[in-house]
Amino acid sequence: MSSNEESSNGDSTNENRSRRRFITGLTSAAWAVSAAYAAVPLVLSMTPSARARNAGAPVEFDFSKLQAGQMVKVEWRGMPVVVLRRTPAMMAGLDEVTELLADPDSADSVQPGYAQNPARADANKNEILVMLSVCTHLGCSPVEKLAVGPDPEMGEDSKGGFFCPCHGSKFDLAGRVYKNVPANKNMVIPPYQYLDENVILIGDDEARNA
């Protein structure tokens, strides 16, 4: 009892009050730091797992059956990759739309160096377009509009291209984005290489450096 009285008397002195406040502050800070540390494993448990990280292997695709003007979608890392063999008319159309594009030279867009050209393809086989079919706006997969001519979405004198159904972004047949649409970058060209005349390896271009 007497010790209680002593401490309550001690409380009223300014020195004790500030000391108490300091210790309370220090304890609270220690709690906050501990809580932050405790949150780390929980937060990190939500990042991509080792299994997800290992799942990104390159995929092979044999495009010998792909006729001029035909397109297929191949899955790589869970994402759709377009492989399109463009016709000479389609290739000619690429130059006619340059004025309408936001980034015709692909200066702000993502592609390997060997695909930074108007066709956005390997110069050896520049009619073959290999492209992530993922809209650079919000990640939908744009619909192919391969036909030349009037199209409800692409416009009256469409030279063919890709139209994103989600938010109306338009791309040409090299995945270059049109001006004044929600997307502002060209679609991504993944690294790729030719294993032989008809087989393409998507996701790996090591051989180019060798």
């Binding site: 937060v43 939500m46 990042t47 991509p48 797992s49 997800a52 990104g56 890392r77 869970g78 994402m79």
Partner: peptide, 12 residues
């Protein structure tokens, strides 16, 4: 990527 727990919308 943290929200998805993967590079695309997936099982995670």
């Amino acid at each position: 990527e943290w929200i998805r727990g993967d590079f695309v919308v997936s099982d995670a």
